[in-house]
Nucleic acid binder design. Structure first.
Lengths: 145, 145
DNA sequence: TATTGTTATACTCTATAACTATA
DNA sequence: TATAGTTATAGAGTATAACAATA
């Protein structure tokens, strides 16, 4: 007969704790990897959207990233200030800004992308490719359900 | 020869996106489950610590939960206001407050605990017990590494 | 009248600094 | 001199409301 309690007060046993802290650890790693390129995770996300596919309006990018359009303004302000993206009125609808990567921005994205992938790989290095793939599958299933 | 790009701009393919949104979804579910009992996730964490083991000082609870001691003040203020916990000076060291669950607080914890577990189970229902156990193992390994 | 980008504002969450009372 | 609790304050992050330009 064990004297151990059936449950403990250790928060590290809760799935919520594990998810939250795994997220934080990955974010810290990727932010650190992106820092030399002058972008944070959110900005990298925007570059990623802009690097693939057609030029888009601010609102389209915001919706893809799941952020408010007012948040997008400050984000693009920072990227534009550093010469990573350009904004110009859409000739077809002058209410919109067409946002595009500059040549320098494309290079930044390529470099940052490699660093980002390396950070993700480092985060996963302890668990092996099978468990890593299983992790993504499970998370996707949890989000779909 | 495929015309598909090797990568896409869809953020849903990134591990960081999956982790962040899985965390948010679970938090939303547990917060919703706890709401009828008048506590949020953080407060439930405090109740959980207090429900197991010896009475503790505010600082000890704060450290177990990984929050600042100034954050603990407002958290306990709310719980005390609702009659869930009591604070009294520790006779052995009057700088400290001994924090304990009231009888009502214990009942609240029991009820909230069942609701919390049900919410977690509902979150996991799409993936089966094997995948759920594997998820926890993988997350623990990622946090330890 | 509705939409896009912008600005100003407010709100949440949390941490830092300073104060008090105790040790 | 150091520690526990408290309070006031500041910072990051994000959302809401209102406004200008355009459709």
């Amino acid at each position: 007969m064990s004297t151990e309690p059936r449950t403990t007060s250790d928060p590290r046993e809760l799935l919520g704790y594990l998810l939250k802290h795994a997220t934080a650890k990955l974010m810290a790693k990727t932010d650190e990897a992106l820092a030399p390129f002058g972008v944070d995770g959110k900005e990298f996300g925007a570059l990623r959207v802009l690097a693939h596919g057609e030029p888009q309006s601010q609102l389209q990018v915001a919706r893809t990233l799941g952020v408010d359009r007012t948040t997008m303004v400050a984000l693009l302000d920072a990227l534009e200030r550093r010469g990573t993206v350009t904004r110009r009125p859409d000739p077809a609808d002058r209410r919109r800004n067409v946002v595009e990567l500059t040549d320098a921005g494309r290079q930044t994205y390529r470099d940052a992308s490699a660093a980002f992938a390396a950070a993700e790989a480092e985060f996963l290095e302890g668990v092996g490719p099978r468990a890593a793939a299983q992790l993504s599958r499970t998370l996707r299933a949890l989000l779909d359900g």
